[in-house]
Design a protein around this nucleic acid. Sequence first.
RNA 1: UGGGGCGUCGCCAAGCGGUAAGGCACCGGAUUUUGAUUCCGGCAUUCCCAGGUUCGAUCCCUGGCGCCCCAGCCA
Length: 542
Amino acid sequence: MSENTNFIHAIIEKDLENQTYGGRVSTRFPPEPNGYLHIGHAKSICLNFGTAQKYNGQCNLRFDDTNPIKEDTEYVDSIEADVRWLGFKWDNLFFASDYFERMYDCAVLLIKKGKAYVCDLTADEIRAHRGTLTEAGRKSPYQDRSVAENLDLFERMRKGEFADGEKVLRAKIDMASPNINMRDPVLYRISHTDHHNTGDQWCIYPMYDYAHPIEDAIEKITHSICTLEFEDHRPLYDWVLTELDWEQPPQQIEFARLNITNTVMSKRYLKALVDEGTVDGWDDPRMPTIAGLRRRGYTPEAIRDFCERIGVAKSNSTVEIGLLEHCIREDLQDKVESRMVVLDPIKVVITNYPKDKTEYVEIENSKDETKGHRMVAFSGELYVEREDFMEVPTKGYFRLFPGNEVRFKGAYFIRCEEVINDEQGNILELRCTYDPETKSGTGFEGRKVKGTIHWVDAKTAVKISARAYSYLMIEDEKGENVMNPDSIKTYAAYAEPSIAESKAEDRFQFFRHGYFIADAVLTTKDSKVFNRIVDLKSSWKK
RNA sequence: UGGGGCGUCGCCAAGCGGUAAGGCACCGGAUUUUGAUUCCGGCAUUCCCAGGUUCGAUCCCUGGCGCCCCAGCCA
């Protein structure tokens, strides 16, 4: 699959060479089901599944559902669908919550070893005892409880004898550690909350730092790949597995999470956009979610290619959104057909074309000859793109302007003879003439024109409401991402009739507008000039 | 001046002591029935800075500087 290698592959190859895990490679993608997956997760998905594939290993999809307050089955369903859509198959699907009993047993073991204790301090008190970045913490007054008492208390915690926040189970490590994560971290908290998977079976839930290494170990994961912010947690990850005497413990490896210009990746922020109704939902085409990108017309291939190109390293970086756009253009380039759509129309009347006549001209569906041709209606009344005409051309402009002749794609040379304006000077229509000699395909060589433009026949065109999407976020003067007030634009557009026959997943290329898919659509050729995505959904579907 | 990371072209990113890959962007030029695509060509004497070791350093050492992360009973 991938040609590129990264530092994680290097670690794995060394482990393979040393037979660290008996030649096994096993990874996992462990999302918490508290939101939809976004492009940042795609990087992790491609890394984990891709790495497993590369070394003939295994990769599990595991829901890290240890905090019932934030989790929901809606999210697990969407996550499964998105991973599958991206083109990956998990070897096993697990829920961290399925290991709760086993985790409980491990906690009991730690207590028996004198490595964990029940603490009655309140959250605030624990914080106060933890010390600061530069000062050591103080030990909890409950740190020296007997094993028997801890065992009893922990069991009663599980039985529901205490209220939320009344007690926690803590690891007994080192309150003076320069690494704050090692200052007797909380292992279990009490939360009388129903869990999406275990219902009301539990009222104590394990913390990430305690649960994750056990989850990995149970699944015999060899390389537990996560993001940079967990680097400081690694000593705790290792501590848990060491105290539990796990053989061939997995190793945690961290990489830099993905940042993209003009894009906010924070799940908290994205959820707020959805909850406040700022966007239509998690799958709004402007969202950086997998579901949003899918509606916007992105293909799994393009997203995977993007993840391959950005690489994997440990330095914080921000990839330009242009690279993602390049990937979708390149992918669609040779697998999609072209259609003519005029987003912002100007009427063109061809004065010397026979009244009431309609002829059909042949236009190729793609540069790829195997995709065939179609017949498109052409008559004396047409629409062309407003930006394909300039009443007063700038230097170098070679599309339509008074006195200039251009080719109408697949049809004739057309010359603009006259501009009809209203009192305000707005262009109402263009009076043009055509030259019958110049019909496409006849081999006319008499003269050349510099420009070719697309058009749509006025009588047969279907009227569509096209939605054009721009970036959801833009940078302000300080370089901070802020909401783009013009992230969406609607056009009363015209399209050739064949568009109306396309299906929800069909994608097309619009001349000079980029690409679109039926249910959403498209990205543009040049994001600086034609930065739009067209959503045809609302219009032609009904 | 607690600890953990990171600093190679505008943006990503290889490189791991032997004399700076690749991609995106950008700039030329050729083809072109859409100023697109395709196609050729250009684009870091230099790797955060300063010393040192070495025949030789982006890679090793020392000292600076800059940026990111950590004080949730979130993940």
